[in-house]
Computed example of a mutant assay.
Amino acid sequence: MSDLAARLRALPAFPEDLPVLDLETLPEDPTELFAAWLEEAIASGARQPHAMTFQTALPDGTPVGRTLILKDLDEHGFQVSTRSTSRKGRQLAENPRAAMLFFWRESGRQVHVTGEVVALGEDVSQRDWLARPTSDGQPNPEWQVYALQPTEIEFTQARHDRLHTRVAYRREDGRWIRCSDR
């Protein structure tokens, strides 16, 4: 083992008191659990609890990730925004599938969301643009709000023994199915 490997192994992991993911009390709709975990992260004072790694793909399938901010979650899906002409905007136009990975270190929780991405209407996009701190009050025709419509959501609750608790949901025939194959 190299010196770096030994130093990395010795780094502290999670706080002593970790929440427990009770598999017996899960909601039918995983967005309810996501919203509860996000609210807990906000209430805990975690910095940027709405930040996530947003992953798209190059034409050859190579994944590309960057950190974005969740703008909203509603019946349209998990919302982010960017210029339609940006690298990620072009990637979404070519392949409208993406993934999000939220990680709340303070609670040892992460949520992985995958699905199809759709562009929302001009009214939603311009409202978002005008609310940005850098907006000059003028419309931006390149600004676009996208909604990731989840087809799979996986929740992971860390444990000190590294036998983390995981539960996945998959959307089938318009309803959520809890998966035990992960």
Rank of each mutant, 00 (worst) to 15 (best):
R170T: 15
F155H: 08
A51R: 12
D136M: 10
H50Q: 15
S44Y: 00
P49R: 11
R175N: 06
W143S: 08
Q138A: 11
G65F: 02
H76Q: 13
R166D: 04
R87W: 04
E75H: 10
Q91L: 12
I153Y: 00
V64H: 07
L101C: 14
T165H: 04
W37K: 05
Q157K: 07
E40I: 05
A35Y: 02
R66K: 07
S107G: 04
R127Q: 15
L58I: 02
E16G: 07
S86T: 04
V111W: 08
P27V: 02
M1G: 14
E122H: 15
E94R: 13
A6R: 12
T151H: 11
L58Q: 11
T67Y: 08
R127V: 04
P139Q: 03
I177L: 15
D74A: 02
L26M: 02
L23I: 06
R66P: 06
S180T: 15
A93Q: 14
G45I: 12
N95S: 14
Q138I: 00
Q126R: 06
L58S: 00
R178C: 02
A57H: 10
G121N: 14
Y169T: 02
H160L: 10
A131N: 12
R170H: 13
L92T: 04
S180E: 14
A43S: 10
Y146P: 09
E32A: 13
R175T: 15
R47Y: 10
Y146R: 08
T62N: 03
D181W: 13
D17H: 14
D60Q: 01
V111F: 09
L68P: 07
L92S: 01
Q138M: 08
